[in-house]
Simulated assay, not measured.
Amino acid sequence: MLRQWPGLKAVGVDPLPEAIAQAAANVRAAGLEHRIELRTGLGQDIADTDAFDLVFVPSAFIPEPDVRAIVKRSHAALRPRGWLLLAMVNPGPDALGDALARFRTTMWGGTVFEKGAAQDLVDQSGYADSRLLPGPTGAPVAFVAGRKRG
């Protein structure tokens, strides 16, 4: 995205120092260190207020209590009319695909949302205009988007 929009800046957050170190090496190699800030920490501990236009939460890698806390905290971190994009594993098209998607997410330590639960979380956390964005047929990920009122 930063290559497509030259004015865009990003903040990456991860609790693992090793992941941040690898990300920093990748950012340097891409020549984007002046546009990407990396922080070691937890998404739910972000102290920024009215600072971001978009928050992306990859729930497949984050335990459910933390996803819930991040979605709620992100509301304050977003600027008015900013967007939350909650990525989640898209269940497979059949029972086997669904079971494999759930298994992978569980192995990654992430959250598996039951039908409608992710959008309910976004709605209950104060976001407006929430909607399910299923992605292309067979895509391994789906999204729920919600906008901060403003």
Rank of each mutant, 00 (worst) to 15 (best):
L54M: 12
W83L: 15
F56S: 02
P65E: 13
P91Y: 02
F113Q: 06
D120P: 02
F61P: 00
P63D: 12
R102Y: 03
G92A: 07
I62P: 01
E114Q: 14
G97I: 08
P80L: 13
G126N: 12
A76M: 03
G92W: 05
Q119A: 13
I70T: 06
A76K: 05
F103M: 11
S74R: 00
A128S: 14
D98R: 15
G110K: 09
R68Y: 00
R102L: 08
F61L: 13
G110V: 11
Q119R: 15
K115Q: 15
P93R: 00
G109D: 01
L96K: 12
D120I: 08
A128Q: 14
F52A: 09
G92Y: 06
I70W: 00
P63Y: 02
P65T: 10
D123I: 13
D123V: 14
V71D: 11
A118N: 09
I70C: 01
F56A: 09
Y127D: 14
G97C: 07
L96V: 14
E64P: 02
W108P: 05
I62W: 01
M88P: 08
P65M: 12
K115Y: 02
F113N: 09
V71R: 02
G97L: 04
R104E: 12
L96R: 11
A69T: 07
V89M: 07
F61K: 04
P93V: 09
W83G: 00
D53T: 10
G116Y: 02
P91F: 02
M107S: 14
Q124P: 01
M107N: 08
V67P: 03
L84S: 03
Q124V: 04
Q119K: 14
A101N: 09
L96A: 14
E114N: 10
A117Q: 14
M88G: 11
K115S: 13
D53P: 05
A69S: 11
R102P: 04
T111G: 10
D98A: 14
P58T: 05
L86T: 04
Y127I: 06
T106H: 08
V89E: 08
F103V: 03
R104K: 06
V67R: 00
L100T: 04
D123M: 07
R104N: 10
D98Q: 15
G126Y: 10
D94M: 09
A128F: 04
E114I: 04
P65D: 10
D66G: 00
V122C: 15
A76L: 08
I62K: 06
A117K: 11
N90F: 00
F113G: 08
A117P: 01
V71P: 05
G82Y: 03
V67L: 04
H75A: 02
E64T: 07
I70S: 01
F52P: 13
A60Q: 11
A95C: 03
V67K: 02
L85V: 15
